[in-house]
Amino acid sequence: MMGKVYFVGAGSGDPELLTLKGKRLLESADVIIYDRLVHPVLLYLAKEAARFIYSGKYPKNHVLKQKNINQLLIEEGRQNQLVVRLKGGDPGIFGRVGEEIATLQREGINYEIIPGVTAASAASSYSGIPLTHRDHSSKVTLATAHRQAGETIDFKGLTENGTICLYMGVERVESTQQKLLEQDVSPHLPVAIIEWASLGRQRTITATVQTMIDAIEEQHIQNPALIIVGEVVSCRKDEDWFEQLPLFGHKMLLMDTKTIDFETILIYTQQGADVYAIQVGEERDKRFDEVHKQYLRDHYFDEVVYLDPKLTTVYKNQRDILDK
């Protein structure tokens, strides 16, 4: 008897952007295959017997090549179990879900797709920028800066009373600006660049088509970042609702000797903090050892919240955790 593979969109950043259906499947899954841009605190929803498999891909350094991921889905999908393929954002928007579905279809393995909140929605909403607006935009285009050879985008037509959201656009911003200007898009058209959308480490900068390269370089903006081009960017007025939350900008590491409850994490994220949580000690859930190492290598948290006061004398900072 074969199992079933569920492609679940984790949403972008804020763990509460996960759908109710996605939450139910994570709680039921026998194995969870998760991507780099998935917030790993979502794994705290998993049952005790669930297995975790990291399939994160770094630019130019893929942990599991796509063909290996496809093979992994076949191997896990053939077993009588519930498999969750957890992807950042929405699986069907630049998530390569089409290739993975085709693999399962060839093998006769059942699957479902559960959509998620894509980066364009999360980044714009958490920056106070509506993607459509009666006065500015009647259409939205989602595009990637990583285009096929010879492929062109009608920037002029799509920005006239419209909004363009460019995924993974920071590395190619020079060629994007060149094409915008070549197509006679106004150099004064507003642009927003949002890094780590909907997390407490989010940064939003505004510029114009003319100044976007300088703005990205000055602020050292890096991927994951979304570029929004269009008059709707002018709707952003200084800091918006998310950036005004009391713990916005705080990078907080929660530590406990007991199993950390997902709801405890949300107490802090709901106030705007960038949060990660770790259980330590002999009774810890050892499935998370590799998860923690991977995440803490990529992200630094400068505030430690000791949910178990005894830990204050053992762990002073994030480095102590990695060393131990």
Rank of each mutant, 00 (worst) to 15 (best):
T259M: 03
G249M: 06
D90V: 05
I33V: 15
F155N: 02
Q183S: 06
V232E: 00
E160L: 13
T208I: 05
T163V: 01
Q210S: 14
Y268S: 06
I194Q: 07
G98K: 11
W241H: 13
E16N: 11
D35R: 06
I74Y: 08
R51M: 11
K310L: 14
R134C: 00
F288S: 06
Y268V: 10
D256F: 05
Y44A: 01
L20Q: 09
L18D: 06
K324F: 12
I205R: 00
E100F: 10
K258Y: 01
L86A: 04
V304A: 08
L18C: 07
R203Q: 14
R147L: 15
V63P: 00
R297F: 14
E107I: 04
S186F: 03
L199M: 14
G22C: 01
V31G: 07
Q318G: 08
L181I: 13
Q71F: 01
D289T: 14
N110C: 12
K4L: 07
E217S: 12
D323Q: 15
K87I: 04
R147Q: 14
R287Q: 05
L307G: 11
E100T: 09
N68T: 05
V173L: 13
K87N: 05
T19N: 02
H250A: 14
K87E: 09
Q271G: 02
I74R: 13
M168L: 13
G98P: 10
A277F: 09
E151M: 11
L43W: 11
T211E: 12
I33C: 11
I114S: 01
A277E: 05
F242M: 10
P130Y: 00
F52Y: 09
S137C: 00
R297P: 00
E263P: 02
A277P: 05
V233A: 00
Y167L: 02
T208N: 03
W241E: 10
F7C: 03
G249K: 11
S175L: 04
V84H: 07
M255A: 12
E99S: 07
G150D: 03
V233C: 01
D302I: 02
Y295D: 01
L42K: 04
G249P: 09
V117P: 04
D154L: 12
D308G: 04
L199C: 14
I267E: 15
Y34L: 09
T103I: 03
I109K: 11
C165S: 11
V229S: 07
L73M: 15
E218L: 03
L181W: 07
Y268W: 14
Q222R: 15
Y34I: 09
E283L: 07
R96W: 10
L311H: 13
R134T: 01
D214H: 15
L180H: 08
D30N: 15
Y6D: 04
L17G: 00
R172C: 06
E27R: 12
G272I: 11
T163R: 00
L253G: 12
I164H: 06
V63R: 07
L266K: 12
T269R: 00
G89T: 02
Y295G: 00
N317R: 12
L226D: 06
D302F: 06
T204A: 11
Y44E: 10
G92E: 00
L158V: 03
D308V: 04
F7L: 15
E174D: 12
E107S: 08
A29H: 01
E243M: 08
K251H: 14
V8P: 04
L26T: 05
A197S: 08
D256H: 14
V5W: 05
K293A: 14
V117F: 05
G249E: 07
